[in-house]
Each structure stands twice: as structure tokens, then as C-alpha cells.
Design a protein around this nucleic acid. Structure first.
Length: 584
DNA sequence: GTAGGGTTAG
């Protein structure tokens, strides 16, 4: 109709497209008009339309437009690849790549970064390896951007040696390549490697920037290396690197992840600029450190300042309630989310898992189970896992078995679920059932995660496994440990051999309880740490009841503060008392 | 014209 009444020029349609760039409905109308026109420039209008659709994220429609085009140029293929990557549709990307090859269309240097990223998202290593071969065959392996994407892909696949080899063999490594590598190391939990490469970067005289600093602060938070992190931050200041709000947030988070809550609060109060991430970081940090009241007070303050919380803020609030056993408050905050009518605040699976954790931890196991059954979302392993954890704490074998059955069925390769069930049986003295679980794990080939603890000293991170004797100071460490154990026994410490282990791996009988990795790390800290400074120990799994009691005694005996971060939360031991009280 | 890097949660 429109076209008949007033002849539209190409320019007019182009203008219309620009004006409607974010409105899918209008885009569709314009598309219909374009299709009816006989413009020779039809393809250029369709190109513009395709770009807009990719931007809006309507990939189905974008594909339809693409398929209608006659012999689309490589730029258009790339536009579609970009859309698939941005909208996390890796499978579509791979199919498109296959189609491209089948049609004999040659990918160019812009194509590969998108396709490599898609394979990263897809998470299938053999596809990545074969794509790498294509890259080499087409002669694009020397391109810095393609190589950077490949390095990141291998790192995401946990192929550390391939990633490092590829990165090392890059002939020209600019700052972005370094930053990408360091960032992906941190994102994949390889912060010690990130630190190693940060040092290499300095050795190679590559000047870092604020991106590097953020990744490194995040790495130091993961490693619990407050001193190294602060050193890097100070260097950044001295070298006049722009310490924007992202850097400041990362620094705040590092302090909180190192258990340094008081210092973090000072930083937070002094921040010139604060956004929702700053507030959420602080609330989540307080919750992790067991300062639930502070977390909730901050949430109220945030609301009073008229700042909109996001879903992460609520995760912090709910976990604060959970750690403090504040069931009613938790329920109230959860209903606040439900009633908010804000699409961005609709409870997600993680929030449901938090609620299950809150109810379960407080001993309301049946209510937690009912809650799961009534949920409007399909429960995932995180939600069932929270209930299983609660069953382990409260030693509920009947429900524990039921939940573990579901979990082992859906995720047979995750060791911690088997371990939790086995701990429930062990606590009930059902050793035959414990053996059955172990047998099943062997049969399924389920891998146990080895427990380790780490502690920073003299700019280095020292790692300890259980019963570890590989440390150069090993002899002195064991002597120190024996000395402490003797002293605290006199104070009333009794090794808790019947303790309920959380998701730490099963203890072999021959391995002594007294040589758990966190005990070795604490002994190391007592030998080397400065008097008056807290001993910060990081543990990759949850700490056991016995190590918890041990740490309380040691903090009293030595008058040293021990800050222990385990997989879930912090324990601040001061003068024989732990901040986590009975809820952990 | 198109391609690689950062903060809370998981």
C-alpha cells in the first residue's frame, strides 16, 4: 500500500530503518516493503536490516532475512556469526560455518574470531581442535586476534598446556593479548598462572593498564593474596593508571575475599562513586564473612538511597539470612523479589537454591523439600545439592538418600554428591552403605576433588595437600603442628574423628586427621607470619568439623586471628570463637 | 563496515 501511494526511495527506507533500529515490529514492516520493491539496491537495504536485527537479538528473523539474500557477501555471513555469538547461540554458529564450507564460501580474517568464540561457548574440545586446524590451513594463525581467541578457547577447555604453548608462540603479543590471557586464567580459576604471567609481562617490559589491574585484583581475591593485590594496586596508582570504578570495585571485592571486611568498609565509605556492583560486592562480601547484620543493614541503606538492587544483590541478602539462620527475614526478602513486578528481579534458580539452603540449614528439611516440589522452575543440581548439604548437616539419612538418588542420576560425575551421601551414612555408622557408595564411584569413574589449602607469604602462594611433605619447611611445620596439638589437648581439645565431613573427599583411615591441609597451612602461618597479623588460609573445599574446632583452640592458644576461607564462606577465629557460630 | 581484554553472582 505504502509503496503504491508514495514511491519510496532507497534513502527513505534507509532512514526508516535507522529510526526503527531497536523496534522489531517496525523492522518487520519495513522488510515487507523492501521485499516488494524492485530496487536494485535491495541487498544494501537488507544488509542494514540484518544488522539491526542482530543488534536487537532477533536471530530467527535475522536468519530469515539472510536466507532470502542472493549470494550474500562475506560481511553478511560475519554479521550473522556476530549475532549468534552475542546471543549465545553457538550451535547455530557451527551449523552456519558448516553451510558456509559446503557452499564453498571462503571465511576471512573476521570470520574466525566469531567461530572460535562460538566453539568456546559450545564447549566441545574436538570441534575446537578441528577448527584450529582450519585456521592454520587457511593461514590465519598468525593474526593476533584469531590467536588470542584460540588461546582463550583452549583455556576455557582446561587445556592449559595448549593455551600456554599457543600464547608463548604468538610472535607479536600486544597489551590486549596479554590482558585476554590473564583474564581467562582468572575466569577459569587459574589465578596462580595469571600471577605468573603478570610477572612475565613486567619482565617483558609490557606496560599494564586498568584491564590488567582488574584481572589481577580478582586473581588475588581468589588466591587470598591481599598483600600482592595491594602492591599491584599501589603500582597502578604510581604509574598513573586510570583507577576507575571497575578497578575500585575489584579492589573492594579482593579485600572481602581475603576476609578483610573492616578495610573493605573503609574503602567502600570513601569511594567517590558507587554503583550497584559496589553495593552488591559489599553485601555479598559481608554475607560470606558471616557479618549478616551488616549485610542486611547495608541493603536497607541502599534502598534508602533509592538505588535499585539487582539479582546479585538479592543473592547476597538471601545468603546473609541463610548464614545467620534468619528464616523469616529470608522469606520476606524472597517475597519482595516475587512481588516486585520487575522482570529483572524474578527469582532465578540460584535464588531458589538460596531459599532451600536457608530452610535446610535451619533444620526445616521437610519444608525445604516441599518448597522444591512447589517451585515454578525445574529444580537443577544446585537446588538439590543445597538440600543434600542440609541433610548432611542435620544427618537426615532418609531424605538424604532420596535426594542423592536424584543427583547421582542427573550428575553421576560430580564427586561431591557421592561424598555427601557417604558422609551421611558414615555419621549414622552405616559402613556397608559407605562401601557401596565408594564402589559406585569407582564403577562410574567419578573423580574426587583433592582438598588443598593455600597461604600467602613473602609474595608467594604456598600450597598444601593433606599429609603433604613436599614443602621445603615440611620438617619444621610438622614439629610445630605436634607442639600445638600437645598444647591444645591440655586445653581440652579432643580430635573429632566422627565429624560430619561436608563435601571434602572421603578420609582414608590410614591418613591422620591431624594432617589435614588447613592444619599444615596454619602451622606454616604460625612459623612464618608476622606476629599481630592474621593468618589467612584459603581452602578449595569445605573445612571439616575437626579443623574448625582445632582452629578455635589455636586462635586462643596463640592469640592470633585465623581467617579461613572455605568453598562456601569465611571463618574468622578470634580468641577461641568463630564468627560463623552454629550455622555453617 | 565486521574481530581479541575488566568488577558482584554461578
Amino acid at each position: 500500500m505504502l509503496a503504491k501511494q508514495t514511491p519510496l526511495t532507497k534513502q527513505m527506507l534507509s532512514e526508516l530503518l535507522r529510526a526503527s533500529s531497536s523496534k522489531t515490529k517496525q523492522l518487520k514492516k519495513i522488510h515487507a516493503v523492501v521485499i516488494r520493491t524492485g530496487f536494485s539496491e535491495k541487498n544494501s537495504l537488507l544488509t542494514q536490516l540484518l544488522e539491526n536485527l542482530v543488534l536487537v537479538g532477533d536471530m530467527c528473523y535475522a536468519r530469515q532475512v539472510f536466507d532470502e539474500m542472493h549470494k550474500p557477501r562475506i560481511f553478511l555471513w560475519n554479521t550473522l556469526f556476530k549475532g549468534y555469538v552475542r546471543n549465545q547461540l553457538p550451535f547455530e554458529s557451527v551449523l552456519l560455518y558448516k553451510k558456509m564450507r559446503d557452499l564453498g564460501v571462503r571465511p576471512d580474517e573476521f570470520t574466525y574470531p566469531f567461530v572460535v568464540k562460538a566453539i568456546s561457548q559450545l564447549g566441545v574440545l574436538p570441534c575446537g581442535v578441528s577448527l584450529h586446524a582450519h585456521v592454520v590451513k587457511n593461514g590465519f594463525e598468525c593474526l593476533g586476534i584469531v590467536a588470542t581467541e584460540l588461546v582463550m578457547m583452549y583455556m576455557k577447555f582446561s587445556e592449559l598446556s595448549s593455551a600456554e604453548f599457543l600464547f608463548e608462540s604468538m610472535q607479536v603479543k600486544d597489551l590486549v593479548a596479554w590482558n585476554a590471557f590473564i583474564a581467562v586464567c582468572v575466569q577459569t580459576g587459574n589465578s596462580a598462572i595469571a600471577l605468573e604471567y603478570f610477572n612475565k609481562m613486567s619482565a617483558d617490559a609490557v606496560q599494564f593498564d586498568s584491564f590488567t589491574v582488574v584481572s589481577m585484583l580478582s586473581a588475588c581475591g581468589q588466591l587470598g593474596s591481599l598483600e600482592i593485590g595491594e602492591e599491584i594496586y599501589d603500582r597502578a596508582r604510581k604509574e598513573e593508571i586510570d583507577c576507575n570504578i571497575i578497578v575500585e570495585n575489584a579492589r573492594l571485592d579482593m579485600h572481602l575475599k581475603c576476609g578483610s571486611t573492616e578495610a573493605a568498609r573503609v574503602l567502600f565509605d570513601e569511594m567517590k562513586q558507587r554503583n550497584v556492583v559496589s553495593w552488591s560486592t559489599m553485601i555479598v562480601g559481608y554475607a560470606m564473612n558471616g557479618d549478616s547484620r551488616e549485610a542486611l543493614a547495608l541493603f536497607t541503606m541502599m534502598q534508602n538511597e533509592g538505588l535499585r538492587p539487582n539479582y546479585v544483590t538479592f543473592l547476597g541478602v538471601l545468603s546473609a539470612c541463610s548464614h545467620a539462620g534468619l528464616v523469616n527475614e529470608g522469606k520476606r526478602y524472597f517475597s519482595l523479589m516475587v512481588r516486585s513486578n520487575d522482570k529483572n528481579l524474578e527469582p532465578r534458580k540460584e535464588h531458589y537454591a538460596c531459599m532451600v539452603d536457608l530452610l535446610g540449614r535451619s533444620g526445616l528439611l521437610e519444608e525445604a523439600y516441599e518448597f522444591i516440589k512447589k517451585m515454578p522452575v525445574e529444580p537443577d543440581t544446585g537446588i538439590w545439592g543445597a538440600l543434600l548439604g542440609a541433610c548432611a548437616v542435620h544427618r537426615d539419612m532418609i531424605l538424604g538418600q532420596k535426594v542423592a538418588d536424584v543427583l547421582v542420576e542427573t550428575a553421576p560425575d560430580i564427586g561431591s554428591y557421592h561424598v555427601l551421601l557417604s558422609n551421611i551414612y558414615a555419621a549414622a555408622g552405616k559402613w556397608d552403605c559407605v562401601d557401596k557408595v565408594r564402589g559406585k564411584m569407582r564403577k562410574l569413574g567419578t573423580k574426587k576433588v583433592a582438598a588443598y589449602s593455600s597461604i600467602e607469604f613473602d609474595g608467594k602462594i604456598h600450597f598444601f595437600n593433606r599429609g603433604d611433605k613436599s614443602h621445603p619447611q615440611s620438617k619444621v611445620i610438622y614439629e610445630k603442628l605436634d607442639e600445638i596439638l600437645k598444647k591444645i589437648r591440655n586445653m581440652g581439645y579432643v580430635p573429632d574423628t566422627g565429624s560430619v565431613f561436608h563435601d571434602v573427599e572421603m578420609e582414608e583411615k590410614e591418613c591422620s586427621l591431624s594432617h589435614h591441609s588447613e592444619k599444615l597451612a596454619i602451622a606454616f602461618g604460625l612459623i612464618n607470619g608476622r606476629v599481630g597479623h592474621p593468618i589467612r588460609v584459603m581452602k578449595n573445599l569445605r573445612t571439616c568439623d575437626d579443623c574448625h574446632v582445632f582452629s578455635k583452640f589455636v586462635s586462643r592458644l596463640t592469640s592470633r586471628e585465623i581467617i579461613m576461607r572455605d568453598k562456601n564462606r569465611f571463618h574468622h577465629f578470634r580468641n577461641g570463637i568463630c564468627s560463623c557460630k552454629e550455622f555453617w
